[in-house]
């Protein structure tokens, strides 16, 4: 009869091991993305929000004035987690990190999320037949005003008729304008 405790210990050990593995698997994000495009110095949000009282009322904010919602008819805490501001919260109550904000957007934009997962909405870079890097929805859509922002176009081509037989010296050769752009998303 002395052996039973050992068996129990072993069973407990296996159970804990499996539990840990399952948890760890849950922690690995499914899609490899670059870090979220936070403004400098704002993260972690808990730097200010820890201990701050949560006010669920819709109101003019005395802070984050740059954020004016122009999205669906909702409020900050439909997306942000009131209890731990360093996370987002889904409608189901599930809390997710900012690195997985696509689940948040996917709740309401299911078709686009499906295309995104296939690499068709949004973009992937890296290897076409190997490792790929996705972009978060928020790399292209500021969640508070999600319409894609206009860009300055690069110069039009020169008219080929002006162009055919030109002779130039080395220092008259134009440089490539693509080197001067500073789009956030590169």
């Amino acid at each position: 009869m002395q052996k039973i405790p050992y068996v129990l210990y072993f069973a407990l050990f296996v159970f804990l091991l499996l539990f840990e593995v399952a948890k760890a698997k849950d922690d690995i994000p499914e899609f490899f993305v670059p870090p979220p495009p936070f403004s400098e110095g704002i993260f972690p949000c808990s730097g200010c929000h820890k201990g701050m009282e949560v006010n669920t009322n819709r109101r003019e904010l005395s802070y984050h004035e740059d954020i004016k919602l122009k999205h669906f008819d909702g409020w900050c805490l439909d997306c942000h987690n009131p209890n731990d501001r360093d996370k987002l919260r889904l409608a189901s109550g599930k809390v997710i990190p900012f690195t997985e904000s696509y689940y948040l957007c996917g709740q309401c934009h299911g078709d686009i999320f499906r295309d995104w997962k296939a690499g068709v909405h949004g973009k992937r870079t890296g290897m076409w037949n190997g490792k790929k890097e996705y972009r978060l929805c928020v790399h292209c859509h500021w969640p508070h005003q999600p319409r894609f922002r206009p860009l300055e176009p690069l110069p039009p081509p020169v008219n080929p008729e002006d162009n055919k037989y030109k002779k130039v010296t080395q220092d008259q050769i134009p440089l490539n304008p693509v080197n001067n752009i500073s789009d956030k998303l590169r």
């Binding site: 909405h121 992937r124 290897m127 190997g130 860009l151 998303l185």
Partner: peptide, 20 residues
């Protein structure tokens, strides 16, 4: 193998270009 995406796919800021 593995090979990078074409340069135009890589740069497109709206992700309009698909390759495979």
């Amino acid at each position: 193998n593995p090979g990078r995406y074409p340069a135009c796919v890589e740069i497109c800021p709206v992700g309009a270009r698909k390759f495979g």
